[in-house]
Design a protein around this nucleic acid. Sequence first.
RNA 1: GCCCCUGUAGCUCAGUUGGCAGAGCAUAUCCAUGGUAAGGAUAAGGUCAACGGUUCGAUUCCGUUCGGGGGCUCCA
Length: 608
Amino acid sequence: MLQLHGIRPYMKNFMQGRISWSFFICSMIERRANMDIEKIRHSLAHVMAEAVQHLFPGVKFGIGPAIDDGFYYDFLFPQPITNDDLSAIEKEMRRIIEKDQDFIRTEISKQEAQELFRDQPFKLELIEGLEEGKISIYKQGDFVDLCRGPHVESTKELKPSAFKLKTIAGAYWRGDESKPMLTRIYAYAFESKAKLEDYLHMLEEAERRDHRKLGKELDLFSTHEEAGPGLIYWHPKGGRFRVELENWWRDEHYKNGYEILFTPHIGKSWLWETSGHLGFYKANMYAPMKIDEDEYFIKPMNCPFHIMIYKTSSHSYRDLPLRWAELGTVYRYERSGVLHGLMRVRGFTQDDAHIICTPDQIEDEILEVLRFSLSMWKTLGFKEIKAYLATRPADSVGEPERWDQALVSLKKAIDKEGLLYEIDEGGGAFYGPKIDLKVKDAIGREWQMTTIQFDFNEPERFDMVFIDKDGKQKRPYMVHRALLGSLERFFGVFIEHYAGAFPVWLMPDQVAVIPVAPSFDAYAKTVAKFLQEKGIRAKAMLSEERMNAKIRDAQNQRIPYMAIVGQREQEGSLVSLRLRTGDQESGIPLEVFAARVLEKIDMKSLDL
RNA sequence: GCCCCUGUAGCUCAGUUGGCAGAGCAUAUCCAUGGUAAGGAUAAGGUCAACGGUUCGAUUCCGUUCGGGGGCUCCA
């Protein structure tokens, strides 16, 4: 039941999860600062609305809140606008700000509000939902908006250089597809010009690291519209990465007490009816195919298959815990508009596992999973990790005692590992609570990767049991977990985190041997072969290009080690090194170089 | 799916206010004796996403379809 791919692209909300309650008390200063910037952003939204009112008479207003990196306002324009109109709006906003207008708050009755906004259908709808006597309006210049506030005192507190209109986008009124589509104008806004510029630089950096761009440049993967969007083709270099990653993943799983399973890609409708997926997950499953007289579905999840294996024999409490892992490829329907490179796809391989255990093992098991996950993230070079604990929603299955015990074990595990965490009250799936881990990447973005989820649904539906000490049949606990999430999505995040310059052990090409002139091709080949025989991915660059061009090419490919060879090196069985960092070291004995590279590979070192 | 933007050579992009399509990189061939981020020349490479409409004529304008991008959670 893992919902690994239901994760929104990073630009949304990466500074903050959907959190209803925080364990951490912001200092008063921070809280004050947050309030100030919110006030500024929200006030700017009003200024934008005023500007739009000036430029597009007859426009209808939706809402205009502050958001993580600025603000937006939703409008219904009399005629469509284009990106070109943004600069005119921005200009008008600056003019308004210069006028030094006060924001004036007034409280009015519901009836007065309805009268005031009689031409504004969306405002009227909002007023409907408000209580009498608590209705406030804010006015600046000739613009009046229904608004709770607070706002800055005057437009003079707004800095014309610290905001920038971003894009126009469609957005349904109140996020509801059945309601009219409004035109949303997004803007960035910060306390100061410098902060805005920092943020814009971060966005540029993100663009530079974009995995779709690097995937093409580094020849790692592709997608093909004519063969089906949202389906990933791993090229030889992406394949090298994946094989290395999977090999390590398997080794680690065996070391951590897991067994590895392989299960089919399709299953009869019986399986999905029993699991309940045809009830609550059907919208994400592909249409069935008919084989003989039966309907088969392509799997969107691996769990029912693992349960089938569990049920091939009876299990004593002595057999538990079972830790069963699979790199299972699943297919899920995603609407075409949400597909995004490797991050949101229609077919992907989960690094899935199911832990089946007794009630008194559950705490240790959760702790083990968490530890395992953290150790993997450490090896992969992600240092900052935060946990999000999602608790029981209103509608749920499973006995309350189980939910409580599950939650306690999740909390204890987080505490023992000393992780920062936030609680998402009621945010769990109907079938169980979960911990999600978000990792922070090199430019500060958070990505949700690991998920550890209890499942109180399937063990019931499949009637999973074990025989306890007292000889009675009991229901085991089942936990789904994915550490990397999916290999596709992980690859995308990894590419962006390292901007393509992976640690040596995961680099498709580890060493480029570059002769300074064609007369040293033979020695270059010898060097490459020597390294290859030791298990290093080395290639001799023997084209007719000049050395400079080869270095540039290797550098662009982020190859960690460039071994430059010429007369001196050939005579002394040496190499001269250029690292992808630009550092140079000359006259290194070939043996010494090989040993160094092997050590970096074996240690999964993050440096060269 | 819906809104806006977008689709020209393998890649990155120009361009035609409607008149038989261009550059750089990559590729191929040739020349070039070269020490740490692109040596030079020549050639090959495109039904300008697909289909339909307007027009003497469409890659260009219009429509539809199929992709790609940004959004569609933030509640006055």
